[in-house]
Simulated scan of single mutants.
Amino acid sequence: MKCPFCNYPDSKVVDSRPTDEGTSIRRRRECLHCLKRFTTYETIERLPLMLVKRDGTREPYDRNKLLSGVMKACEKRPVPQARLEQLVDTVEQKLFGTLETEISSQKIGEMVMQELKNVDEVAYVRFASVYRQFKDINTFLEELNSLLQNKK
């Protein structure tokens, strides 16, 4: 591992422990040349996942796009950033757990809505309104009524 300070090609591991989520290993390293310390994270290499959009086009799955959509839905809501990261982690575990190389955007949207429903109902309705592309007020009201029925 190259030192980010002096670019020396060798370092030693001083400390190693799992992250809070358990999805990676945090390693504290010390450069053998300048003796400065830095942190690296070791994660599992995942198979590339292609997203199949509604129009049939394909693009590489992008965690940042998913997180951005969830953040927009939760804008001005009392949902901590850490909880949004956890939600995306949960969705990704399900996605990569299928071992599929292609997945539809609809399937991902449904997974996100299922998780958002448990996090914040307003954010869920916001996400659903964009994802499901409500055509009129009646379809919007149907979704709200469905949410209220499931709450009882």
Rank of each mutant, 00 (worst) to 15 (best):
E92K: 02
T98R: 13
R37S: 04
S68Q: 13
L51Y: 02
D136R: 04
E42D: 12
Q114P: 04
Y61F: 15
L32D: 11
K53E: 15
V125W: 04
K36C: 07
L147V: 11
M111T: 03
L95P: 00
L51M: 15
L67V: 01
K135L: 12
T40Y: 10
K94T: 08
Q93T: 09
G69V: 00
P9I: 03
R63Y: 10
E102R: 04
S11H: 09
L148Q: 05
V125D: 07
D55E: 08
F5Y: 14
G109I: 00
S11L: 04
K151L: 11
P18Y: 11
A123T: 07
V130W: 02
S129Q: 00
I103H: 02
Y61I: 12
L99M: 09
S16K: 03
S104Y: 10
M1C: 08
T39V: 12
R29W: 14
L141N: 06
T23G: 09
R27H: 13
I25C: 04
V52Q: 10
L99D: 13
R17D: 08
R58C: 07
E115D: 14
L144A: 11
T40F: 06
V91I: 06
E42F: 02
R29L: 09
R29V: 07
V130A: 13
V14C: 13
R29F: 05
R63L: 08
F96S: 07
E45T: 10
K53F: 05
R126F: 10
S105F: 03
R126K: 02
I137E: 10
K72E: 10
V14M: 13
Q93V: 05
T23C: 09
R17T: 03
F38Y: 15
L141Y: 06
V88I: 13
S16W: 09
R26C: 07
T139V: 12
R58V: 14
T101E: 06
H33N: 07
L144C: 15
I137Y: 12
D136A: 14
K65P: 05
N118F: 02
T23S: 11
K152E: 13
Q81E: 15
L148M: 14
F134P: 01
E92R: 06
K117V: 01
S105C: 06
L95Q: 04
F96N: 13
L99F: 03
S129T: 00
I44A: 13
D62E: 11
K72G: 12
E75G: 10
E92T: 09
M113V: 05
H33R: 11
I137H: 09
M50Q: 09
E21T: 14
K151R: 09
L49R: 00
A123E: 01
E59I: 11
L144P: 01
L51G: 13
E115A: 06
A73Q: 01
S146R: 08
L141F: 05
E110R: 14
K152P: 07
E59T: 05
